[in-house]
């Protein structure tokens, strides 16, 4: 029993040759079956035996498993976080798939066949051949009203969504607004209330009757759900308080885009700030097409600041 372990060198020899896209085939089959159920029951959270991934739970393990299960050698993958291709976690996930699947990657939305995202939907409308994969931290829209899975599952089964409406209405009574700005609940095809993941509610209308297939993966919570193309996705609201998205007072400071989601960037500690596109690809393409915002200057070459 006290036989000592082999040396580090022999341990290294045991390093497995990982499968295409990391997951073994049986795991992919299990995930693929869950995806099909999700598509057949739009907005319903399908339990799946989420695996332990070589990245932390809460950092995109659900999205990564869904992407790994659908991805093939002909796909072109785009990964964004907060709308940007070069946020650190997006870089790490893109690198993971380049390493384990050898797929082509891109930052151009139009070029991608599979787009994995955290917290945003690209500004440009998606096309029929595209798949949008969302990373989801808490898939249950009722979770903040009722922490117990046993309860929320029954509420979905009975289509008993009164609690959600009460919560939204209490917001209105107290603040004059619905005080939910992201992860804003939607109803899918008139049946299931669904959490769109923590995208700003600005993006909710993009889900409605999108041409692309939308897949949602929650790794830690072990749930997969889906919205097929051309499916009604309606943000919850009230007749006297219709759903409204956030508007920005000014256009993007770099590309002058209006009607897009902007990040606020602090420029100094005296209240100096600017607003720039959250969707970096959209912003770059607009600038390449000659659009100039107030602070763009002439030189728009990318500079590293690492």
């Amino acid at each position: 029993m006290n036989a000592l372990p082999p040396t580090a060198a022999t341990v290294a020899h045991d390093t497995p040759a990982y499968n295409f896209a990391y997951l073994d085939e049986q795991t992919k089959r299990m995930i693929r079956r869950a995806i099909l159920k999700g598509i057949a029951i739009p907005g319903y959270q399908v339990p799946f035996a989420s695996r332990e991934m070589p990245m932390p739970y809460g950092w995109g393990t659900g999205g990564v498993q869904v992407t790994a299960a659908v991805l093939g050698p002909d796909d072109v993958l785009k990964v964004i976080d907060q709308g940007a291709d070069d946020t650190t976690n997006a870089v790490a996930i893109r690198g993971f798939f380049r390493k384990t699947a050898g797929v082509r990657t891109t930052t151009h939305t139009a070029e991608a066949t599979v787009i994995q995202t955290r917290h945003r939907i690209p500004e440009a409308p998606l096309a029929e051949h595209q798949i949008l994969v969302y990373q989801v931290p808490i898939p249950e829209p009722l979770r903040f009203l009722e922490p117990r899975e046993t309860e929320t599952r029954t509420m979905h089964a009975l289509e008993e969504y009164g609690l959600m409406h009460v919560k939204l209405y209490e917001d209105i009574a107290r603040h004059g607004h619905i005080a939910t700005t992201y992860a804003y609940p939607v109803k899918v095809d008139g049946r299931y209330i669904m959490d769109p993941s923590p995208t700003p509610k600005f993006d909710n209308p993009k889900m409605h009757r999108s041409k692309a297939l939308q897949l949602f993966g929650a790794g830690r919570e072990k749930r997969i759900y889906a919205i097929p193309p051309h499916t009604d996705v309606v943000s919850l609201d009230f007749e006297d308080h219709p759903f409204k998205v956030q508007t920005f007072a000014q256009p993007c400071a770099l590309c002058a885009a209006e009607g897009v989601y902007l990040d606020e960037v602090l420029l100094d500690d005296k209240g100096g700030r600017m607003f720039v596109c959250s969707d970096t690809d959209n912003c770059e393409e607009r600038r390449a097409a000659g659009h100039r915002g107030a602070l763009a200057g002439d030189d728009i070459s990318r500079k590293d600041r690492s």
Binding site: P56, Y57, W59, D81, R118, Y182, P200
Partner: peptide, 18 residues
Amino acid sequence: TGFVEHLKLPHYVDFQAE
């Protein structure tokens, strides 16, 4: 630990909305 530590990841899109 994954979920607690994920709060380190950028959340500025949601924070902007708030």
